[in-house]
Design a protein around this nucleic acid. Structure first.
Length: 858
RNA sequence: GCGGGCGUGGCGGAACUGGUAGACGCGCCAGACUUAGGAUCUGGUGACGCAAGUCGUGGGGGUUCGAGUCCCUCCGCCCGCACCA
């Protein structure tokens, strides 16, 4: 009697047994090699989504596979639990952020446990817990003492309604994403991490990160944005100071026709103090939108300050100094020299203000004497002209010569500029890690003494007023100065939540340590061997974590620079989108499919428009709740579907048909097992001495599958591993009931079915465990080592070789594996289809690629 | 504009260093069976053709005995960055 496999019952059973026996508890005192598998921890938004299911399934396959392969695996889980949504919930629903967050964590923990992940739940952490953030405060103080944290005035996006700083991503078309109010630029005193200290190292260390996707590496390289160039000093005529500019084209200095300052340049501000017109111009620049569209349509505008900059190579020549709206304060030195002939922006500016345009680089092969620039600047390599001592040199040589001369004159030197800016971590928010600092009128910035950590968030806060609740709290910010005892003010900014996630992987190594990390534990476990998460974190999170690890090393908490030795970025989970007759988005569960292929609203029966497939998102309502899928089909089906078909780095299309297919396979495996069970020999029966052809073929299929699946999992080609397992299942089904009375058939069948269970265990752990038990094993499958392919069986004795005539396939011949070339040649030439294709023409040559192809050339 | 990726049946995708294109799954077609199930089982399924065969990996060209894979060129789609001097 073949019974249905009941995932709901079975999955619960094995989850309980694994938990009870502590199968996935990691210990550092272990002789085996360590392997740290980590998936990006979730933000506790309410319920898990399909992106989580995919992420954690991928990680669990790696974790279970590595464990079976004999590694001491660390696979922890926690919660990125601080953040704005908790405060929004507080405002909208009147629930305290902590209460909201911990309730979400409880829900999501239960959901994750239903997935059957091989996690060490004893190491669970939540970044909003004082047991976590107190150590973050300690780290902050260590970095402050080491000079890696500082405070400075910075220009920020300020929402005047919500009274808070907004990240660039939170400014949409120049307005606050929540309030809709026009965002202002404000100069505010903010805390910064000195990530730029590590710019060069963050760039060059990529050489050691071979197991990172090239794409992420390039994105970070772009973000860090190294430019090799020169600083050039322009003495200011009639003044005793000089203007410092950065350029990547010192070779074009002889073509300079003006200098320009950023509206936020200190010199511009100083001049504006005495010049109301300039002050107005600067104010107008700062009001200008920062959106992409605003930048693209903005005219180049400048204000002539009347200052004269002296050309470093031609003391007789002075250049007008403008304040210009296209010069950025936070790149280079906030000032440029303009060479209109060889920079498009400079050219636009020069044409508008009637400045000279002198070409100083001529395209190769062009006569310099009649070379002129029209309305397109010349940017490519060429020969220097009109440039005194640089004439005749190519661009690279001219750069070197110009820098050498500048250096000799004391008017400049070679410099490297980076696009990367220091990381502003101040947030005017309640639900974040308090920055452990006290401001004293007499002593200045005073760190909170370690003995007073943690600086706890107050529970009794109000979200009635806009702005930072910590600032509004009646008592919290009032503190005595730790240095002089006078009344002082506690810092009310909290940390950007990216700080929380910049070191959590280290905390997992010793999650209950009374210091940020236990040095022995991090020395044992770090770096993370395999990190898995979404591509959306390619820059910020991954860059911050790389920086923070270096910062932690500098203050002695860890001994490494790179936190993630291997990185895998998964694709998104996508789904069709639906709109009702009113144009509003509909959930897939609200859509009913008619037999003629049309979609209608499940309730009203009105027509539904089916839109293109997009990444699942709440805003488009094209989400499917994982928990309901797991409840209906079981976790193994959901996991199997996540791994089937699409390569893990690509986007995955969620379809009902695909889930049904995965469901059918779980049932099919169980059926294969139950149908065969009565005829199988007992577990551990000795290997028969000989195998007849059908049994031998099945053994070969089994061992080939072991080799292929092992390699596929090792290389993250899980969709291929899935296909191999389908093939082996097909082979078992085709083998059917063992023929004849020999022991070899049942034995080979048992080997094949056991292998199916063992190889699918990382993907469908519950079903595999159940099969293993049904096969009569007393041990848990999670404790059984990964199977090894026997090379004697992993290859076929006979191979089918393609025979081509002039490169076109004409026949195939069966040959013994590794047959000598002469035998292959004669077998090919004897084939009637080959002879027909040769058409009686004389044989010119025969190319034999062993075991693959024979090409007959006529 | 700069940087990167991708383009293979009706669909998702296989194809290791150039060597039988389309594994495996979905869908579809035909049949069987039935305890009518989320069924299951068997066979078929790139196009054209009765067949022999011809064509076929975005288009065009090239290298090679042989190209989805390498080179050149064009087209299309996607992603990241973008007034970065």
């Amino acid at each position: 009697m073949v019974s249905r496999y009941n995932p709901q019952k079975t999955e619960k059973k094995w989850q309980a047994i694994w938990a009870e026996r502590g199968c996935f508890a990691a210990r550092a005192d272990d002789a085996r090699a360590k392997y740290y598998v980590l998936e990006m921890f979730p933000y506790p938004s309410g319920r898990i989504h399909m992106g989580h299911v995919r992420n954690y399934t991928l990680g669990d396959v790696v974790a279970r596979f590595k464990r079976a392969r004999g590694f001491n695996v660390l696979h922890p889980m926690g919660w990125d639990a601080f953040g704005l949504p908790a405060e929004n919930a507080a405002r909208e629903k009147g629930v305290h952020p902590a209460e909201w967050t911990y309730a979400n964590i409880a829900t999501m923990r239960t959901e994750l446990k239903r997935m059957g992940l091989s996690l060490d739940w004893d190491r669970e952490i939540a970044t909003c817990h004082p047991g976590y953030y107190r150590h973050q405060q300690k780290l902050f103080l260590d970095l402050l003492a080491a000079g890696l944290v500082y405070r400075k005035e910075a220009s920020v996006n300020w929402d005047p309604v919500d009274r808070t700083v907004l990240a660039n991503e939170q400014v949409i078309d120049g307005r606050g994403w929540r309030s809709g109010a026009p965002v202002e630029r404000r100069q505010l005193s903010q805390w910064f991490f000195r990530i730029t200290d590590f710019a060069e190292d963050l760039l060059s260390a990529f050489r050691g990160l071979e197991r990172w996707p090239e794409r992420v590496r390039l994105m970070q390289e772009n973000w860090i944005g190294r430019s090799d160039g020169a600083r050039v000093f322009f003495p200011l005529h009639g003044r005793d100071d000089r203007l410092e500019v950065f350029t990547t084209r010192p070779d074009t200095l002889f073509g300079a026709s003006f200098c320009a300052l950023s509206p936020n340049h200190p010199l511009a501000a100083a001049l504006a103090a005495a010049d109301p017109a300039l002050a107005d111009f600067i104010a107008a620049c700062n009001r200008r939108g920062t959106s992409e569209a605003a930048i693209e349509t903005a005219e180049k505008e400048g204000f002539n300050t009347g200052l004269k900059a002296v050309h470093p190579f031609r003391a007789e020549l002075t250049l007008p100094v403008y304040v210009a709206n296209f010069v950025l304060m936070d790149y280079g030195t906030g000032a440029i020299f303009g060479c209109p002939a060889h920079d498009q922006r400079d050219l636009d500016f020069a044409r508008k203000y009637g400045l000279p345009v002198l070409p100083v680089v001529a395209p190769p092969g062009v006569d310099p004497s009649d070379y002129a620039i029209a309305d397109t600047a010349y940017l490519d390599d060429g020969v220097s002209i009109n440039s005194d001592f640089l004439d005749g040199l190519d661009v690279a040589a001219a750069k070197r010569a110009a820098i050498a001369r500048l250096t000799a004159l004391g008017l400049g030197d070679a410099t490297v500029a980076y696009r990367l800016r220091d990381w502003g971590v101040s947030r005017q928010r309640y639900w974040g890690c308090p920055i452990p600092v006290i401001h004293c009128a007499a002593c200045g910035i005073v760190p909170v003494p370690e003995a007073d950590l943690p600086v706890l968030l107050p529970d009794d806060v109000s979200f009635e007023r806009p702005g930072n609740p910590l600032d509004h709290h009646p008592t919290w910010k009032h503190a005595a100065c730790p240095a002089c005892g006078a009344a002082a003010r506690r810092e009310t900014d909290t940390c950007d939540t990216f700080v929380d996630s910049a070191w959590y992987f280290a905390r997992f190594c010793s999650p209950r340590a009374d210091r940020p990390v236990d040095r022995a534990a991090v020395d044992y476990w770090l770096p993370v061997d395999q990190y898995i998460g979404g591509i959306e974190h390619a820059i910020l999170h991954l860059l911050y974590a790389r920086f923070f690890t270096r910062a932690m090393r500098r203050v002695g908490h860890v001994g490494i620079d790179e936190p993630f030795a291997g990185l895998f970025t998964q694709g998104m989970v996508c789904h069709q989108t639906f709109r009702g007759a009113d144009g509003k988005w509909l959930y897939p569960s609200e859509v009913r499919w008619l037999s003629d292929g049309r979609a209608v609203h499940a309730g009203s029966g009105t027509e539904v428009t089916v839109g293109r497939s997009e990444a699942m998102s709440k805003s488009k309502k094209n989400t499917v709740d994982p928990d309901s899928i797991i409840a209906a089909y079981g976790a193994d089906t959901a996991r199997w579907f996540m791994l089937s078909d699409s390569p893990p780095e690509r986007d995955l299309e969620w379809t009902v048909a695909g889930v049904d297919g995965a469901w059918r396979f779980t049932q099919r495996l169980w059926r294969l097992l139950e149908a065969a069970l009565p005829t199988l020999p007992a577990a551990g029966t000795a290997v028969p001495s000989a195998f007849a052809a059908p049994a031998l073929a099945l053994r070969r299929a089994t061992h080939k599958t072991i080799a292929a699946v092992s390699e596929d999992i090792e290389t993250f080609r899980f969709n291929r591993a899935v296909a191999r397992l389908y093939e082996l299942a097909n082979a078992v089904a085709e083998f059917g009931a063992p023929a004849g009375g020999g022991a070899d058939g049942p034995w080979a069948q048992r080997e094949a079915i056991e292998t199916l269970a063992r190889l699918s265990a990382p993907m469908m752990p519950h079903l595999a465990e159940e099969m293993w038990q049904a096969l009569g094993h007393a041990t848990l499958l999670v404790d059984v080592p990964w199977p090894e392919a026997d090379p004697a069986f992993a290859v076929d004795a006979q191979v089918t070789v393609a025979v081509q005539v002039n490169g076109k396939l004409r026949a195939t011949v069966a040959l013994p594996r590794d047959a000598v070339a002469e035998a292959a040649r004669s077998a090919a030439l004897a084939d009637p289809a080959v002879q027909r294709a040769m058409g009686g023409k004389p044989l010119r040559k025969v190319i034999v690629v062993p075991n693959r192809v024979i090409n007959v050339v006529v």
